[in-house]
Structures are given as C-alpha cells and as structure tokens.
C-alpha cells in the first residue's frame, strides 16, 4: 500500500474536481441540469445504502464497517481496472471513503443512489491520476499474486487474466470506464451515464467501441484464449 498522506481535516476539504450532493442541490454532481443533452432523467430512487449513511452521519462505527464491507471491493475494482495497479487502486479507495466519512452528514437522499455517487468520485479520482501519469506509458500490467491451488491451471488463468487486463488497460479511458461500470460494476445504463455525465446514447457508443476494441485485441490476436474456455 502506498504512502498516501490523508490527514483528515485537509482531505475533507480537498475538492479535486469532485463535488457532492449538497443540501442546496445546485452543487449536485448528479443534478440533471449539469448533464449533457439527452442525459437520463433523475427520479426519486430507493437507496439501499440510505440507512447506513444516516447512521454514519451520527457516528455509528458499525455502519462504517458495514458500508466498507459492502463497497470497498467495488471501489478497489474500479481503481485497479482503471489504473492498472493495486497500489493506485487502494489509494483511490481510501480517498473515496474519506470523502464518504466527511460528507455523509450532508448527503441528500432521493436524487441518486449513494453507490452511484461513490462510483462517480472513484472515476473522477482515476481520471485525475491518469491525467497526471499520462506521460508514463504502461507497457505491461503488473504481476498479480495468484493463490489458485493448481499451478498449471493457475498459470493459464493468470495468463488469460493478464491478457484481458492488458487489453482493457489499452482502451481509451472513457471506453474503459464505460465497460468497467457496466460489465464489472454491474451499474445500470442510467447509473453509468450519470457517473460519466453523458447521455445513454453516448454511453452505448462508448460501450460498443470499447467492446469492439477488446474483441479485436482478444479474439483476433489470441483465439486460443477462447478455445480453451469451452465456449
């Protein structure tokens, strides 16, 4: 884990291009007036995290743990697939949750799911980091530790996983983001469009181009990967 220096008070006030839903509503990142033309309309949502956020706002530590269990893997997953390294992913996840603790008491329920807002924060943090690292070319996705019991199977799975992650990482950022949100994070098309601040049509365009790019890299260049999977 990296040396992320997050002193609470300062970090709570870091804007980082990220705003959260205020009581006034006009700073809302998910406010429909801020989205592009054709963006999905916002409706009152039933938020499965609403109760947890209320409890966190009054300092309930059990709720903190519950929210962490529920969403930490998702935030790390976004970070790792967007940025390519576990270290960056963990730092992004830390920053997301720090914002949660800071802003839980100001959350206005009903406009969007809290998880959607968390994804939005995570994606923006990833874009910030990618912008800073743009000059660094990542030729290879870092090795990961695989604890699968069968070494041969583990080797094969590891190779496939690395090919998939590499192909994903080579996609343009926005296409990669759209595929991560819809395929890996299982967000609905409306939620993913809200996170990315784009219309449904634009989201579908990014998804189609992204999947086409992945297909070209994975299926055309390595048909053996597919053949070994009993498709």
């Amino acid at each position: 884990m990296g040396g992320l220096d997050l002193r609470t008070k300062e970090a709570c006030h870091v804007a980082g291009g990220i705003k959260f839903i205020s009581r006034e509503g006009d700073l809302s990142p998910l406010n429909s007036s801020k989205l592009g033309d054709g963006s999905p309309p916002l409706q009152k949502v039933d938020d499965p995290d609403g109760d947890l956020i209320d409890r966190i706002a009054v300092g309930d530590h059990a709720a903190v743990r519950e929210l962490l269990d529920r969403h930490l893997p998702k935030m790390v997953a976004v970070g790792r697939r967007m940025l390519g390294t576990q270290e960056d992913a963990e730092e992004v996840a830390q920053e997301v949750f720090l914002r949660v603790w800071c802003h839980a008491e100001k959350w206005v329920p009903g406009k969007a799911k809290f998880a959607t807002w968390m994804h939005r924060v995570a994606m923006n943090l990833c874009y910030d980091r990618l912008r800073k690292k743009r000059e660094v070319v990542l030729d290879e996705v870092p090795e990961r530790i695989d604890d699968a019991p069968n070494p041969i199977q583990a080797l094969h799975e590891s190779q496939v996983a690395r090919r998939v992650d590499k192909a994903l990482h080579e996609l343009p950022e926005r296409q990669r983001g759209a595929i991560i949100l819809c395929h890996y994070q299982n967000l609905s098309n409306i939620e993913a469009a809200q996170v990315m601040e784009i219309s449904i049509e634009a989201l579908e365009s990014l998804l189609s181009r992204g999947r086409r790019g992945l297909k070209a890299k994975l299926l055309a260049e390595a048909p053996d990967l597919v053949g070994s999977m009993d498709v």
Partner: peptide
C-alpha cells in the same frame, strides 16, 4: 458471449 466470458477472466479483486 465469447467476449463476455473472456472479460470475466479478469484478475479478481484483492482486498488487503
């Protein structure tokens, strides 16, 4: 489905 199955082979998320 072929592409989806490949995408699902992405490395699992590890939580320290």
């Amino acid at each position: 489905l072929k592409l989806d199955q490949l995408l699902d082979q992405s490395a699992p998320v590890v939580i320290n």
